[in-house]
Amino acid sequence: MSRQPFSPDEMMTIAAARALRDDDVCFVGIGAPSAACNVARLTHAPGITLIYESGTIGTAPEVLPLSIGDGELCETAVTTVPVPEMFRYWLQGGRISVGFLGAAQIDRFGNINTTVVGDYHAPRTRLPGGGGAPEIASLSQKVYITMKQSRRGFVETIDFFTSFGHGEGGDHRQRLGITTAGPTLLITDLAIWEPDPQSREFTVTSLHPGVTREAVQETVGWTVAFAPGLSETPAPTETELDVLRALKERTRIAHGG
């Protein structure tokens, strides 16, 4: 257990990292997922295969990339393949055990929006769009999502279905012919969420240290369900914090921040 103070952001990254296994083949989204995946690689999962959509397979960057195509991803990869091959053979071919995504908006069923705020044809805010996410969400064997909680991000109804999670819940994925598990874990700065086995609604299963149910509810635009056996997320260990902070510091220096 850590004696150092830690931030909610650090707790989120470390909790997300812990979810990954040494034998995972993980398709890494940029931003928060990238930090978590590399902390996993540098702590308990040195054998993990990290894949970025730029075609870099088995990459081991010394610093976090600013983009999904930074040179270091290629230099440290086992192999770098063309982008069509990345999506055809490796993702569509069923080789990815975990797709790790971030999001701008999410709903209770783990559907994600990174496309627009407002109407698609006359948006209030035009966001970057889905990139690889629509197929990462449907073709990875399972999906982990990590993002900070806020009323703007955790909404009753997302404005656009960039990536399909559990749709309207229940067996909606299967009804669309999707054979993969979809979002099975949501890690935020406040809690760990898992889908209810029947309704597939994301339910809080673990609160991070010091976080209350009220604090979780305040940042979410729907009535939050808490699991009966609600637990507390173990605080970051000294090692986890040291690894994350060193990684962030190397990254800051490398990117001239």
Binding site: Q92, G130, P134, S138, F161, T162, G177
Partner: peptide
């Protein structure tokens, strides 16, 4: 890839449940 291959279209397993 379809363009390079001289095909009129590309076929793939995708867009399931996607708003696009």
């Amino acid at each position: 890839e379809a363009g390079a291959a001289g095909l009129p279209m590309a076929v793939f397993r995708g867009y399931k449940g996607a708003g696009l």
